[in-house]
C-alpha cells in the first residue's frame, strides 16, 4: 500500500508548465514569493492574481488540488485573520465588550489572508508540476554557483534523491516491524500520548539499525559502480534550456518589473 508514496504531490499531465526546466520553475516561484512581500497594497495584488490564474490555467492541474494545500494552513490563516482583525489600532467600526474591530484591522486581515493563500498556492503549483527528481536536479544545477563558496551542492542533491528513493522502502519496513511486534503482543494503539510515544521505541530501534545497514550496503554498491562525487560526472538527462524557458524568464522578469513599478508609483 505504501509502494507508490511520493513526496510532494506531483500531478502527472502534459502541459507547458510541466515541460519547463525545473530551474525556471524554482526561480519563478522565488520571484513570485518575493513579489508578494514587496507589495504593500491591494493594487499590487492585481498583477499577482493575473499571474497566478494564468499559470494555473496553463498548468492544466485542477484547481481543487491547489486548494488541498490550503487545508494544511487553514488554522494559521484563521489565526492571522483573527489577530489582525482584533488587535489593530485605528478607527473603530464595530465594538463589543472589550473587542474592537477597526477599519485598518479589516484591511490588514484581508491583506494577510490574500498573501498567505497566494504563497501556498504559488509554491504548490511548483510541486504539482515538477517531479521530486527534477526538483533535485534543478536545485543541483541552479545552485551550482554556490560550489565556489564551498557549499557541497552535488552531495546535498545526491542525498536528497537517495532519501526519496528510500522513503517507500523504509515505510514498508516500518510496517513489517510493526506487524511482527503486534504479532508478539505489542500495543501501539491504546494509552495516552506519552505511553504511545514510549511504545514506539521498540519500533524505532530496529528501524534505525536496519537503516544504517542499508546505508552501509548502498555506499559500498555506489563505490563499486565508480561513484566518486560530482566531479567529472555526466548525466543521462542533462538539464538544457530550451526556447520556452527563455520565454518563461522574460514573463517572470516582466511580472517583477510590473510589481516594482506599482510599488514605486503608489
Amino acid at each position: 500500500m505504501f509502494r507508490d508514496i511520493t513526496l510532494g504531490q506531483y500531478y502527472p499531465v502534459d502541459s507547458c508548465i510541466h515541460r519547463l526546466d525545473p530551474r525556471v520553475k524554482l526561480f519563478g516561484t522565488l520571484i513570485f514569493l518575493i513579489s508578494l512581500f514587496l507589495t504593500d497594497n491591494f493594487i499590487g495584488y492585481i498583477p499577482a492574481l493575473i499571474f497566478l490564474i494564468s499559470v494555473i490555467a496553463l498548468s492544466k492541474v485542477p484547481f481543487k488540488y491547489m486548494v488541498k494545500g490550503m487545508r494544511a494552513i487553514l488554522f494559521l490563516l484563521l489565526l492571522s485573520v483573527v489577530c489582525n482583525l482584533f488587535l489593530t489600532r485605528g478607527d473603530v467600526v464595530f465594538s463589543w465588550w472589550k473587542l474592537k474591530i477597526t477599519k485598518q484591522g479589516i484591511e490588514l486581515a484581508g491583506f494577510m489572508a490574500i498573501r498567505l493563500s497566494f504563497l501556498v498556492i504559488g509554491s504548490s503549483i511548483m510541486t504539482l508540476t515538477t517531479t521530486p527528481n527534477q526538483l533535485t536536479d534543478g536545485l543541483e544545477k541552479g545552485l551550482g554557483f554556490l560550489k565556489i563558496f564551498g557549499v557541497p551542492v552535488h552531495e546535498v542533491a545526491m542525498m536528497m534523491s537517495i532519501a526519496l528513493r528510500f522513503i517507500p522502502i523504509l515505510v514498508e519496513e516500518t510496517d513489517k516491524i510493526m506487524k511482527a511486534q503486534m504479532a508478539r503482543g505489542a500495543d501501539f494503539e491504546s494509552g495516552n500520548i506519552v505511553k504511545k510515544a514510549k511504545s514506539l521505541i521498540p519500533l524505532l530501534v530496529p528501524l534505525f539499525v536496519s537503516a544504517f545497514r542499508r546505508a552501509n550496503d548502498l555506499a559500498m554498491a555506489m563505490e563499486a559502480r565508480g561513484y566518486r562525487g560530482g566531479k567529472g560526472r555526466t548525466k543521462l538527462k542533462p538539464l538544457k534550456y530550451k526556447g520556452r524557458d527563455a520565454v518563461a524568464y522574460i514573463v517572470i522578469f516582466a511580472y517583477l518589473s510590473v510589481i516594482i513599478a506599482l510599488k514605486v508609483i503608489f
Binding site: 555506489m222 565508480g226 567529472g232 560526472r233 538527462k237
Partner: peptide, 29 residues
C-alpha cells in the same frame, strides 16, 4: 553485483539507475 537488490539501486527510475555507473565514468549523454 551484491546480495540485497534494494540496497544497490540508486535511481528512482530503472533507466536512471542503469545510467548511474556510466554517469560516474563521465560517458557522454
Amino acid at each position: 553485483v551484491f546480495q540485497n537488490p534494494d540496497n544497490q539501486i540508486i535511481g528512482q527510475v530503472v533507466e536512471e539507475d542503469v545510467a548511474f555507473g556510466p554517469e560516474n565514468m563521465g560517458v557522454p549523454t
